[in-house]
Every structure is written in structure tokens, then in C-alpha cells.
């Protein structure tokens, strides 16, 4: 059992990790085909994993309805929406358009999913405003610097600001291209080093907590 839970996954991780790290440097067709095949395998595994996800949804919401936990009515709405989409999907043979004409599935997508997604995304504008208000209250020196920089960049980015204070354009460009870029690059260098280090730890079997059970087993 320990072999299947520990040693085999670690061996597979090591072999595949080293093989595909080397693959990056080999432009040979065999190497290209190998990475294409692995990508296909990952898609196949994802397809099977979707069944796990569906089972999880059914189980979690069935329990909610059975126990009538607060908000269990939403679980019924979820079941109904899921069932309706599946029926409509089969009826439309999985196509959103046939010969240029919209199918029922296409209608469902365009007139329910897209507006709902758009609604969620549009809330972002209000959340940015409320988050900005909280961040820009000049309570500390750092928040004051943030406030001044944000006002300058806003003025430099909107036509009215550029008309009233033309110099803000140059300041904005300097802030974005010099200060912001330098900080972003510093973060990205750190992230890259961290990613390489974690990848090496995983390939070499030093980090194995992702297999479950901590590192001491």
C-alpha cells in the first residue's frame, strides 16, 4: 500500500519531471510529439475528473436538501438548472448553432449564462471603488504615497486630467514604466526562483506534502 501511495507517485513524478525538463531543450519531433501526447493525456484525465466534480456537486447539495440547512432552496434551484441544461443540451445535440440558426442551448447560453457572467463582472467596478476608498484613506505614510500616485496616474490617464494638468501624462508614464515595472520585475524574479525551487523540490521528492500525510511518512 505504501508503495502505491508514496513510492510509485514519487517515482512517476521524478521520471516525468526530469524527462519534461529535458524536453524543453530538445526541438526534435519525437520530443514535440511526447509533449503533445502528454497534453492529450491531461485532457483525457480532466474529462474523467469531471465525473468526480459532478458526483461532489450532487452529494453536497443532496445533503443540504436532506438536512434542510439554511439556503437549501438554492440547492433545488441548482438541481433544476442543471437538469434543464442537460435536457436542452441533449435536445440541441450539444450545438449552440445549426446552419446559422440559434439552438435552444445557444439561447440558454446567450440569454442566461452571458448576462449572469456580465453581471458578476460588472460588480467589479463598484468593488474597485469601495476597495480604493479603503486603501486611499491617508492613514499612514505608505497610504499617502499610494493616494498621491493614484491621483497622478488617474489624472494622466483621463482626457480631462490631461487637459487640466498636461504634465501628469509624463509623470504617469514614468510611474508606470520605471517605478511600477521595476517592482513588477523584482516580484517576477522572486516568483520565478520560487517556482524553480518548488519544482525541483517536487521532482527530487523533497517536497511531498501534496501527496497527503506530511513529509514524515
Amino acid at each position: 500500500m505504501i508503495f502505491l501511495k508514496r513510492q510509485l507517485p514519487l517515482a512517476v513524478t521524478f521520471v516525468m519531471g526530469v524527462a519534461f525538463a529535458i524536453q524543453y531543450y530538445i526541438p526534435h519531433p519525437v520530443s514535440e510529439e511526447a509533449i503533445t501526447n502528454v497534453s492529450k493525456w491531461m485532457q483525457i484525465i480532466s474529462g474523467f475528473a469531471l465525473a468526480l466534480g459532478l458526483a461532489s456537486i450532487f452529494h453536497v447539495h443532496a445533503v443540504k436538501i436532506k438536512r434542510q440547512v439554511p439556503g437549501w432552496g438554492y440547492s433545488i434551484v441548482l438541481y433544476a438548472a442543471m437538469l434543464a441544461t442537460i435536457i436542452v443540451g441533449f435536445w440541441s445535440k450539444g450545438e449552440t448553432r445549426v446552419n446559422g440558426a440559434q439552438t435552444a442551448l445557444g439561447w440558454l447560453y446567450d440569454y442566461s449564462m452571458v448576462p449572469l457572467q456580465g453581471t458578476m463582472f460588472s460588480i467589479l467596478a463598484f468593488f474597485i471603488a469601495s476597495a480604493a476608498y479603503r486603501a486611499f484613506r491617508a492613514r499612514s505614510r505608505e497610504a499617502s504615497v499610494l493616494l498621491v500616485a493614484a491621483v497622478l496616474v488617474m489624472m494622466g490617464r483621463v482626457p480631462l486630467g490631461q487637459f487640466l494638468l498636461p504634465w501628469t501624462w509624463d509623470v504617469t508614464q514614468w510611474l508606470l514604466n520605471v517605478v511600477n515595472s521595476a517592482v513588477r520585475r523584482a516580484i517576477l524574479i522572486g516568483v520565478s526562483m520560487g517556482q524553480v525551487a518548488l519544482s525541483l523540490k517536487i521532482i527530487l521528492g523533497i517536497e511531498r506534502a501534496y501527496l497527503g500525510g506530511g513529509r514524515d511518512q
Binding site: 484525465i45 480532466s46 475528473a49 469531471l50 465525473a51 468526480l52 466534480g53 461532489s56 506534502a209 501534496y210 501527496l211 497527503g212 500525510g213 506530511g214
Partner: peptide, 19 residues
């Protein structure tokens, strides 16, 4: 979760952590 594979991995991790 947004990804069923991540969910399966996390289930195992959490279970082992409780153990």
C-alpha cells in the same frame, strides 16, 4: 474547488492532515 483534480488531491491532503 474549480478543478475536480485539485479537489481530489486536496481531499487526500486534508484527510491525511487530520490523521
Amino acid at each position: 474547488h474549480r478543478d475536480p483534480i485539485v479537489m481530489a488531491v486536496c481531499q487526500e491532503i486534508v484527510k491525511e492532515s487530520y490523521v
